[in-house]
Design a protein around this nucleic acid. Sequence first.
DNA 1: CGCCCTCTTGAATTAAGTCAAATAATGTGG
DNA 2: CCACATTATTTGACTTAATTCAAGAGGGCG
Lengths: 241, 241
Amino acid sequence: MGNQVVNLASVQSVCQQCGIYSLCLPMGLQRGDIDALDGIIKRRRPLKKGEHLYTSGEEFTSIYAIRSGSMKSYIINEEGEEHVIGFKMPGDLVGLNGINGHKYKNSAKALETCSVCEIPFDQLEALGHEIPGLSHHLIEIMSKEIQDEHHKVAMCSKMPAEARLASMVHTLSLRFEERGFSPNEFNLSMSRNDIANMLGLAVETVSRLFSHFQELGILEVERKHIRILDQEKLSNLIRMD
Amino acid sequence: MGNQVVNLASVQSVCQQCGIYSLCLPMGLQRGDIDALDGIIKRRRPLKKGEHLYTSGEEFTSIYAIRSGSMKSYIINEEGEEHVIGFKMPGDLVGLNGINGHKYKNSAKALETCSVCEIPFDQLEALGHEIPGLSHHLIEIMSKEIQDEHHKVAMCSKMPAEARLASMVHTLSLRFEERGFSPNEFNLSMSRNDIANMLGLAVETVSRLFSHFQELGILEVERKHIRILDQEKLSNLIRMD
DNA sequence: CGCCCTCTTGAATTAAGTCAAATAATGTGG
DNA sequence: CCACATTATTTGACTTAATTCAAGAGGGCG
């Protein structure tokens, strides 16, 4: 409880201490600007597996950056069926589609214990008027998300099952690598059901394909643990029919 | 060539004269702000059917608002196959996915004679610093596009062929209505091939489905001309397996 | 320890694709 | 403006990839 001597120059914003800030919203900002951004970010208690960060239809107030853990983003259609849109990893922003219409249009659920940074959107916009690079960067991130979704549409609507799963594993591998993890060995945080759902396949098909990839010597699959034995063959599956 | 008496108060910006400005980027802006936006917009010569507005990989400089006509947006994959992403109508913005990385990531091709408004992106951003509502509105439009793409992913990956085509026709109907046209009768500007490609189906399947919808008394299809005879049955097809 | 839920594997079924061919539109050059 | 070439669309028959149904195995949690 006593006073301590603190070297003020060494005080870094939480963002700058964060291992993935270079992939996240602060990317490319000046140090002072990162501190300003840091000032509006709320840290929330971690989410436990299965908890929702927000659900579809809720009033939109904030976007969220994932700090650790992973989430799934999904929508529920008129018949009450769940449609998985994607999986989110540290550094990813979620909730961007709620800006339009001031309501979240999807739900975000923790696949494992997660910590997230809440960024109140009105404050972010206000800050954007002072830090031009910030609003530009937000727009870039949204532009990238549009690109990624285009890619997903093209993938899911036309590729055969084998290529879809290969593509998903390959994309995950790249994303793990970007975040400093091994691209060749990782754990899936989502169930087979979630994978099948996102790819528009039956669970049984996904299960069979994992077995098949293993027979081909491309993957080693042990429940949630994936090891990629042959990245080149994996890539070839994406291209071929 | 002689001087003319002009009533300055009656001079309206081109945007304000445009029939669909209320759906487009100027939406919700004050009159003076619309004029400012108008000032940076370049009108280009109309595109003829088959001409490209931009192609994938080209340097990104501008986003475009479609003024009249319609376009298709597509990407080419590694094998050189075309994947149609979507169809764009008056009031729609195209090129948004080029912001990230300063290159267009898709190509936009006129399906019929089109006129477009070119909006140089750096000028738009500069203007956004003066008109806060403008950059907010751009962000909203992008948020909506992310939403729409999520919807497309869910649709294309999981719905049966019948529901996909029904959904596409229904969405077109809504979009025509928004633009002041009949929701029940319109002309398709795209080929059966483009439709099939976007929906991830074979051309033959699309053709058969149109015939089938006609037998069911839901549509009247005469080449490119579509008349919706029963919107309710059409909507039901989207929901049902 | 046992129940439940997830995952895997096999067999039968089906939705949609491919192949093939006819017909209808569109465009082109003379 | 016509004849021919080319391309787009439709329809039918067959094939196949992926689903559904069914059943069993494996883990994890209370």
